[in-house]
Design a protein around this nucleic acid. Structure first.
Length: 587
RNA sequence: GAUUUGGUAGCUCAGCUGGAUAGAGCAACUGCCUUCUAAGCAGUAGGUCACAGGUUCGAAUCCUGUCCAGGUCACCA
């Protein structure tokens, strides 16, 4: 689209130079013509009319006449200060050529490291991680597409009180069982003991709560919690038996979560582990304290005073000398920049940590780390249940990622069978289709909503195969694929006939891809790409039902419609791949 | 209280740097499969863009205030 628009702008510029030498319009704003009016492109005349102090309609008329002299405009219409342009065949030819080239280039490409997923190793990943992974994966894909050098990394939060709780649970109730002996996926196996711990802990906490303690304080008083705390201390002290158990349980977790990653198509080129980084954080705290950037309070706890930035005092090290969450992130961010020397570090982390990353940036700035400005927190909203409440693992709606994926794939299978299409398919094909349709529906449902917003997620609705869904796009993709498989003729790119409305709209939409993905790359949000792709599928389906393609008699036109089909196929495939939505062979 | 994000059709969401009569999908109702995959297409109905001011040729969009909802403001992660 950009080449044509820039030609039109040039022409308008020179017209203004000749006719209104005093006026220098800063820009000409085009938009696609409202569907209730005829035309393809509309020029906003109001700002220009104001500039030259003319009635908008009469200026619009002048500009329309002028553009009629170019080869790009066939006709024009002026309505209430809007100049609606009817594009010529050469204009469409130009747009089509532009649309045929899917290569996107931007000027300032960067080296970017993107961290996403970040599971805790004490229990299976949940729905929030699904949004995180889909978002991170597709943003990385978008950045790569426009030319950036992107490196995906993961962080395993593998130490701390949480995993110790699972370990205590195992010591109390595990009886030397293993995931293999119980036939359980490793992460669920570990999570089982976390739940057992929590149940026992709240049981033991009851008397304390009745005494008037707050839930958290009461739980801290329980014997079982003390055991977890002891394990944490032993772990930090390097107690071998504790480390061994910790390793066993973490490895069970990794074997489980890696299966989930594989199924979801989630990858990373480097894994970081909190356990390997957290100690370096203390060194940084010490350096900062020595240089006077951080302060110590009367109990010996170290903090940074950010009150002049409108924030609070932020503690960086406990009075007993142990490190905090932010401490290890301070080490980790430095490590990353040492490892990669990148231009930008993107953290895909939920918006409940907005404050955390703001503080992290300030701390690095205060320590004169020049990479502080290159830290970017890609923040996203929560995934909420149907009534707008939080998903909770222990109540009602299952929040575990695997269970949601399973439910969605099962539903896709049921609908495949119900549609009656399954009769000619093998069992294997049906399962493949269910897998890709189910996953596609799930991914699309979480990606189509603007990243910063909370999502109300209803698993049933997401798998509904009608409407604004991944399945709809996949179905369209399969349609184009099926046509292409039957086509042996040549693709016709020359427009030597009158275009139908459906063809025009398809061409115009196809040509919007490049500017769309550039915007997504700047915004670090795949939602717009998701909706662009959905819209493309919609426009193609209209084209498909309204016009004969392979059944068209005229060979040139048939070849031309197949050309449009090929472009749609390529673009749907490209976009879905970037979004991480699987491409089915059949549906 | 401070700060931050949101409030658009019954529901889920679009609406890009201000532009035409605010758009999709779901749910409801009506049509279209002897013709390239009907997981599709076409149509009907559904709105005080939370509220009140302001800026201007023009405001869902920008500014101010109010109300409502979520997040955060820990020696948790």
């Amino acid at each position: 689209m950009e080449p044509l628009i820039s030609l039109l702008k040039q022409s308008l510029s020179s017209y203004f130079k000749d006719s209104f030498p005093d006026a220098e319009p800063s820009d000409f704003v085009f938009q696609s013509t409202n569907k209730d009016h005829t035309g393809h492109l509309t020029l906003m005349v109001f700002p220009l009319a104001k500039l030259v102090k003319l009635n908008p309609d009469s200026l619009a008329g002048q500009l329309g006449e002028h553009l009629m002299n170019t080869e790009w405009v066939d006709n024009y219409e002026v309505i209430k200060g809007f100049l609606n342009l009817h594009l010529s065949k050469p204009a469409f030819q130009l747009v089509l050529t532009d649309a045929s080239d899917l290569e996107v280039k931007i000027d300032n490409t960067q080296k970017i490291v993107l961290e996403y997923c970040g599971p805790n190793t004490n229990k299976p990943i949940h729905i929030g991680h699904l949004r995180n992974m889909f978002l991170g994966y597709s943003v990385a894909g978008i950045l790569k597409e426009v030319g950036h050098d992107v490196h995906k990394v993961n962080i395993f939060n593998d130490r701390g009180i949480a995993i110790c709780k699972s370990m205590v649970g195992y010591l109390e109730y595990g009886k030397n069982t293993t995931p293999e002996s119980e036939g359980m996926k490793g992460d669920f196996f570990v999570g089982k003991f976390y739940i057992l711990f929590s149940q026992e802990c709240s049981l033991q906490a009851k008397p304390f709560i009745e005494q008037g303690l707050k839930k958290e304080d009461a739980e801290a008083q329980t014997p079982i919690f003390q055991k977890a705390n002891d394990l944490l201390l032993k772990w930090e002290a390097g107690d071998q038996a504790t480390i061994d158990l910790w390793n066993r349980m973490n490895n069970w977790f990794y074997s489980g979560v890696r299966q989930t990653y594989a199924r979801l198509g989630i990858d990373s080129e480097k894994d970081y582990y909190e356990s390997r980084e957290y100690k370096k954080g203390k060194e940084i705290v010490e350096i900062g304290y020595q240089s006077g950037v951080f302060q110590k309070d009367e109990t010996g706890a170290i903090y940074i005073d950010l009150t002049d930035k409108g924030l609070d005092k932020k503690f960086l090290q406990r009075s007993n000398g142990t490190s905090l969450y932010i401490t290890q992130d301070m080490a980790l961010v430095k490590q990353r920049f040492d490892d990669y020397h990148m231009d930008k570090m993107i953290y895909v982390v939920g918006d409940e940590q907005n404050y955390h990353f703001k503080v992290l940036k300030y701390i690095m700035e205060a320590m004169n780390e020049n990479f502080s400005k290159d830290i970017y927190h890609l923040s996203y909203g929560m995934v909420l249940g149907k009534d707008g409440s939080k998903f909770k693992s222990r109540e009602g709606t299952p929040a575990d990622a695997d269970l949601i994926v399973e439910a969605v794939v099962e539903e896709a299978k049921a609908q495949t069978l119900e549609s009656g299409k399954a009769e000619t398919l093998t069992e294997n094909e049906i399962n493949e289709i269910a897998e890709s349709v189910g996953l596609g529906a799930l991914k699309f449902a979480l990606l189509k909503v603007t990243a910063t917003k909370n999502i109300v997620f209803d698993p049933k609705e997401a798998v509904d195969l009608n409407g604004d869904t991944g399945s709809f796009i996949q179905y369209t993709y399969v349609r184009t694929k099926a046509l292409l498989a039957k086509w042996e003729g040549k693709f016709e790119s020359d427009i030597n006939f009158n275009l139908h409305k459906e063809e025009e709209q398809l061409i115009l939409h196809l040509a919007g891809f490049k500017s769309n993905i550039k915007r997504c790359a700047e915004a670090l949000d795949p939602a717009e790409l998701a909706l662009f792709t959905l819209h493309l599928a919609k426009i193609y389906n209209r084209f498909y039902t309204q016009l004969p393609i392979l059944k068209e008699d005229n060979l040139d036109i048939r070849g031309f419609r197949m050309k449009l089909t090929k472009l749609t196929y390529d673009l749907l495939g490209k976009s879905l791949t970037i979004l991480g939505v699987p491409l089915p062979h059949k549906m």
